[in-house]
Design a protein around this nucleic acid. Structure first.
Lengths: 332, 332
DNA sequence: ATGAAAGCGCTAACAT
DNA sequence: ATGTTAGCGCTTTCAT
């Protein structure tokens, strides 16, 4: 049995497509369709298990009830968890999620943005790498509903859900300073992401305010393309400098670094302290202990869909910028 | 400037929609469109940055180049990683991923399946809870392209990418027996998932073959709805029985259990051994040490899109069942 | 070498 | 109270 369309239903029952459509969309009463007709249609629709073609509906209405979720890597626990939360929040409002991972590459990001827009997503939630603003600015100019998170660009005016990067990192680093650390290294992925730059700034500020000289040679950048190997190289080099603490700017790099530390520097673990921006479950049981800056994930998810919904509904000009406070989790 | 459609392009240039469409789809030569016309159209299209409406295309062609990915929880690292891998594999073939989390509930699963089908996804990759086979059987009867993984139902004939559950679990449990464990508990989520039942069977088999009596009271099932609390309760009760090893049937429950162990039973960690089906990064650094059965994630992903593609292309009757071998990672 | 027109399945303004 | 019709943006057969 082939799939029935509204047309089939109408023909089978001897009504017009219009009547059937009205009934199916609960406009029966409003459109003065007789109770009897309504019941007849509903019964038949149920009998043949009619399923509306959402694509046709989308083409007609110009909306798809689909939201694009664009992040560097959907399997990163931070993005995965937020993804799960917004999936549920959006589902409650009738939206579905289509996902894309950009690998921090503007090229991939642009191509995915393009695809999503062509697929007529109704809105976009994105953790952009903000390397090249062209595509984003074009979309913004068209008033395409977008909300950004995790990352920010000072040159792009959009709706942002962010966390206090600089201050939080500063507070975290100060914890290990208070504990006695004197020579503190830092490991980060590409700092041309502004949020990461802020985290690095926080680290520096902590040193400065505590009269520790900022040594640029202790600030190491790993290559995103070859994270595992690059982390190992940089970390090894840092260890040779005899640092007594290390700060990491996100969960991904911390996880890799912990692995390296356990593999190659087990003996040093006890004399050192570690600080991570981002918190992952792992930190609760991992060796070494890691003091971490936990982003308020449920809150972020909540604001993301909240603001996106507002943007999709009203055509307001004003951009929102919401900055949330992370929670510092001490594990020293 | 409003978005241009093919019609606009045609009007602007004085050609027909047909001609423009042919050129846009690289059928210019095949359809004998003059070089000059082709160039003109291409140039203009580029100038105004024309973007085809994929929804319209989908409606016309009956395919959307979208694949539905349906799992219990997209933020579970196992599903997230596979998600990421198939996202990339599918992207290379022009497909996008639309995701749904079912929370192990058939109701949610059915509703998502329905939505995905109504949205005309071209295929489905699903880790079903297989609680009620109605919806799945209906889809299978319509020859809807689907590939299943991680879970299996003996009552449902579909394409499966699985791992050896029973044997792997048996081997893992035997490791701790060899190390001297005598009283081995087991913690699992809902065993009405057949794959989990197999893992439990493997556990039992290991005991039997090593002349250890199977004590049903040492086999504990946690409630999926309240995982954290239920894990705590069951684990505490198991610990009161003075078990000297515990086996867990998936990563989710192991992660929770590790947390409970660290919180409430730190003193017991050293005298005990742990075994987990599924491996997560965390196990490399966590206390306690956990011997784990690592599923071959990239291979699973690879087969998933491979088989799905085959199913979408040919209309072959035959169902495939691929069983992969996990890798045992000893950490005793 | 190019165009007219039908149609994918749906909605909704406008009849009747 | 129900039907006619146009149209969303695209592809494709059949004309010319």
């Amino acid at each position: 049995m082939k799939k029935k369309s509204i047309k089939d239903i109408a023909q089978d029952l001897g009504f017009s497509k219009t009547t059937v459509s009205f009934v199916l969309n609960n406009k029966g009463d409003e459109k003065n369709i007789s109770k009897k007709t309504q019941e007849k249609i509903l019964a038949y629709v149920h009998e043949v298990n009619y399923q509306p073609n959402q694509i046709a509906k989308s083409l007609k209405k110009g909306t798809t009830n689909t939201i694009g979720y664009l992040v560097p890597d959907i399997s990163n626990p931070f993005y995965a968890k937020i993804g799960r939360l917004i999936e549920d929040l959006l589902a409650a409002k009738g939206y579905h999620l289509i996902i894309g991972s950009t690998d921090e590459k503007q090229e991939k990001e642009d191509s995915l943005l393009n695809m999503f827009v062509n697929r007529q997503v109704d809105g976009l939630i994105v953790a952009s790498c903000f390397e090249n603003l062209g595509m984003l600015k074009t979309l913004a100019a068209q008033r395409f509903p977008m909300v950004f998170f995790d990352r920010e660009s000072p040159d792009f005016n959009g709706n942002y859900i962010l966390v206090e990067n600089k201050d939080s990192m500063k507070l975290a680093v100060e914890k290990v300073i208070l504990k006695g650390a004197k020579k503190i290294g830092l490991l980060s992925i590409t700092p041309n992401v502004y949020s990461l730059k802020l985290r690095i700034d926080g680290y520096k500020q902590a040193l400065i305010e505590n009269s520790i000289e900022v040594d640029e040679d202790l600030i190491r950048i790993v290559e995103t393309d070859d994270l595992k190997e690059s982390t190992k190289t940089q970390l090894t080099s840092l260890m040779e400098q005899k640092v007594d603490a290390i700060a990491f700017t996100n969960n991904q790099i911390t996880a890799n670094a912990i692995w390296v530390m356990n593999t190659a520097f087990k003996a040093d673990l006890n004399r050192m302290d570690f600080v991570s921006f981002d918190n992952i479950d792992l930190f609760d049981y991992s060796m070494p202990r890691v003091t971490s800056v936990a982003q308020p994930i449920p809150e972020i998810a909540h604001y993301l869909v909240d603001i996106l919904e507002q943007v999709m509904q009203s055509d307001e000009e004003e951009c929102k910028r919401i900055e949330l406070k992370p929670k510092l989790i001490e594990r020293l």
